[in-house]
Design a protein around this nucleic acid. Structure first.
Length: 655
RNA sequence: GCCAGGGUAGCUCAGUCGGUAGAGCAGCUGAUUCGUAAUCAGCAGGUCGUGGGUUCGAGUCCCAUCCCUGGCUCCA
């Protein structure tokens, strides 16, 4: 898309050669534009800014351009243009807020992924009505079409300027800047410290909406004052804004907490405790199906399955370093017979203990231990969120013990395995991140170097594009994180693969090498789905509650028309169940429509309705989820098709 | 943990100025035996999150506390 715009709108200014006229290449055609009219021309194609020799600038600098400069239009439809556009909208919002709340102090107001925000220091939080008033005021400012003007000031001068206006946050920002000279943007009565660039005038904004308010710490530090943040979004036209608002609606509809309740999949109970999940029968059935799949595939992939306890002596975590690094997020120890025990926050020490239960040889390698291990971590109350952020969850954990020269191969295997598992659930787009050494770490720099390289090599070998996340590694080693894209295009981090040189040392893990001497193995920690609870939440939203056949808790609904059909329908139901198909009968004395509605609300993939015709013909017409008719099929044929679709874990309903 | 909003029947929600708590769905009972997204009638269902206070009287006002929601911070 950017290429297209580049071709269509890229043009060159060659000043001097034509003095008054400028050669413009526009839509593939060369034409001359009066120098004075270039700005109008750019406006006519909707450019929000220009890129001069690759740097984004205001349109207004056209008059100062040097000879031979290459100028490219930045449009609001490309990422950089949209960012400028939204950033300008945040200024307009701040302007409106200052008009309505003159005592408000402004903090920062950047463009973000889907819009923008601005933080204010105000005595009372904004209400919904305030937002409406601010929106109104913004409309007025946009209608007035006031220009954004860039000004420059010496830094000290700017400090003085903002101090006089009582804008202490701007003063604080300025005082930490290195530059001698800073830029300010003035737009009507509003002036703000800003790097820019900005749109030429407020009238450029065609579609925006203020979305919500929230408290936010100044500079994101919880020791600082809590400011009031207003989130909003802006798009280059009303249609795109509407699409985005519709998307937000769809997100709401798919909310796993709502669907979890509607479909009776799980619940969280205040009396049990926040962040602790109760899996209801239908949710538990889905989980069982996922777990069976997971175990089968792990056995096929030469993993060995383990079960380990839920509590253990605290000194294990002291030894691993977790107590030191994550004490805040671990539950308080409990004293048993004078010794402190801890509910487990992770599984590794147990797997290490299994490893150490016998003398290991290099010939045994790689040793792959896998466990669906339930762990408990204390999460602060404000961060809990449905299934996505909980206090007790089950990791699909594994620890691979191997020699250093086996790391790359093992990582490659794990990568392939991960992608296979994720694809089975319909996640086919990924974003891969390589997280490197964090500020607080343990182990030698050399080990960090080597393990980071091993991860890098594996990724390159696999031909996966990845981004480096500097400093985001775990304290004991670097990691690869994989984010999947769901059916709404949202990204979720599930899989993580971590190299660990540290724990084998701390726990004195060894193996006997070909030389007959003791050596230190390395460990790879990995989780594919991450946490079953969280993954389930993501799946609910990904499928909007309409699970593919193999995962559906009820796969077939059998509905009778009248009481006289029940006997036959019972036989059909039993036959389906005997074949291992999760079928459910709707035989109560209700109208067909009512029973179809009940089953449809449950998002059951296939329904068969049994009336006189079916009893007589012995054939079953099938109603697919989404009101599509299929068939009719003989019962045996229907069963065969169901089994086929379940076995292949098809994402679509194919019958 | 912090800022804000919220918590009323199993679910979704109404409840005016402080005056003795209401609807739809679900549940139960009965009638109806019906052909592709809600048949009709009746019945039952509540310490208004919890604890305290103000008041003749609190779902409503005040305080505390728990939980939920949106963010912030955090996430082995």
């Amino acid at each position: 898309m950017h290429i297209e715009y580049f071709l269509r709108y890229n043009f060159q200014l060659i000043l001097g050669a034509w003095r008054r006229k400028i050669r413009v290449i526009y839509k593939g055609k060369e034409k001359e534009v009066e120098k004075d009219r270039v700005q109008d021309f750019l406006k006519s194609i909707g450019a929000v800014a220009i890129r001069v020799d690759g740097r984004a600038c205001d349109l207004s600098i056209l008059s100062e351009l040097q000879q031979g400069a290459t100028v490219e239009a930045i449009l609001p439809d490309e990422p950089e243009g949209l960012e400028i556009y939204r950033h300008s909208t945040s200024h307009i919002m701040a302007h409106a807020v200052k008009e309505l709340f003159p005592d408000a102090k402004v903090a920062i107001g950047p463009a973000i992924e889907d819009g923008f925000y601005y933080d204010f220091d105000v005595p009372a939080p904004f209400t919904q009505e305030d937002l409406e008033r601010i929106e109104q005021k913004m409309q007025e400012i946009i209608k007035a079409n006031t220009p954004f003007r860039r000004k420059t000031m010496k830094r000290d001068e700017a400090v003085e300027f903002f101090r006089k206006r009582g804008e202490q946050y701007k003063v604080e920002l300025l005082e930490e800047m290195e530059d001698d000279e800073v830029s300010l943007y003035e737009e009507g009565d509003f002036i703000d410290l800003c790097r820019g660039p900005h749109i030429p005038s407020t009238g450029y904004i065609k579609a925006f909406k203020l979305l919500n308010t929230a408290g936010a710490y100044w500079r994101g530090d919880e020791r600082n004052k809590m400011l009031q943040r207003i989130y909003g979004t802006a798009f280059s036209d009303k249609k795109k804004l509407k699409e985005y608002l519709d998307f937000l609606e769809e997100v709401k509809k798919r909310d796993h907490r709502r669907l979890g309740k509607e479909l009776d999949l799980f619940s969280i109970n205040e009396e049990i405790g926040p962040g602790l999940i109760l899996w209801h029968p239908e949710g538990a059935l889905i989980r069982k199906t996922i777990e069976d799949f997971w175990r089968d595939e792990h056995l096929k992939a030469d993993y060995q399955l383990l079960y380990t306890p839920h509590i253990a002596k605290l000194n294990l975590w002291e030894r691993s370093g977790h107590w030191n690094f994550y004490r805040e997020n671990m539950y308080s120890p409990m004293e048993i017979e004078g010794i402190n025990y801890e509910i487990k926050p992770m599984n590794c020490p147990f797997h290490i203990a299994v490893y150490k239960s016998a003398l290991r040889s290099y010939r045994d390698f790689p040793i792959r231990y896998a466990e669906l291990g339930t762990v408990y971590r204390y999460e602060r109350s404000g961060v809990l969120h449905g299934l996505l952020r909980v206090r007790g969850f089950t990791q699909d954990d594994a620890h691979i013990f191997c020699r250093e020269d086996q790391i790359e191969d093992e990582i490659l295997r794990v990568l392939d395995f991960t992608l296979f598992i994720l694809q089975t659930f319909g996640f086919s787009e990924y974003q891969v991140y390589l997280s490197t050494r964090p500020e607080k770490y343990v182990g030698s720099l050399e080990n960090w170097e080597r393990s980071t390289n091993a991860l890098k090599l594996a990724l390159e070998h696999k031909g996966l594009n990845y981004e480096v996340d500097p400093g985001e590694g775990v304290f004991y080693g670097p990691k690869i994180d994989i984010k999947v894209k769901d059916s709404l295009g949202r990204q979720w981090q599930c899989s993580t693969i971590q190299v660990d040189f540290n724990n084998p040392e701390r726990f004195d893990v060894t193996y006997r090498g070909p030389d007959g001497k003791e050596h230190r193995p390395i460990m790879i920690h990995r989780a594919l789905m991450g946490s079953l609870e969280r993954f389930f939440g993501i799946l609910i939203e990904h499928y909007a509650g309409a699970f593919p056949l193999w995962l559906s808790p009820t796969q077939v609904g059998v509905i009778t028309v009248a009481e006289r059909h029940v006997e036959y329908a019972e036989r059909v139901l039993k036959r389906l169940k005997d074949e291992g198909i999760r079928a459910r009968g709707y035989f109560d004395n209700e109208k067909v429509n009512y029973k179809i509605r009940q089953a449809s609300l449950r998002k059951i993939p296939y329904l068969v309705i049994i009336g006189d015709r079916e009893v007589q013909s012995g054939e079953l017409p099938v109603r697919k989820r989404g009101r599509v008719q299929s068939g009719p099929y003989r019962l045996e044929d229907f069963i065969k098709r169901l089994k086929e679709e379940i076995a292949t874990k098809s994402l679509e309903l194919n019958i």
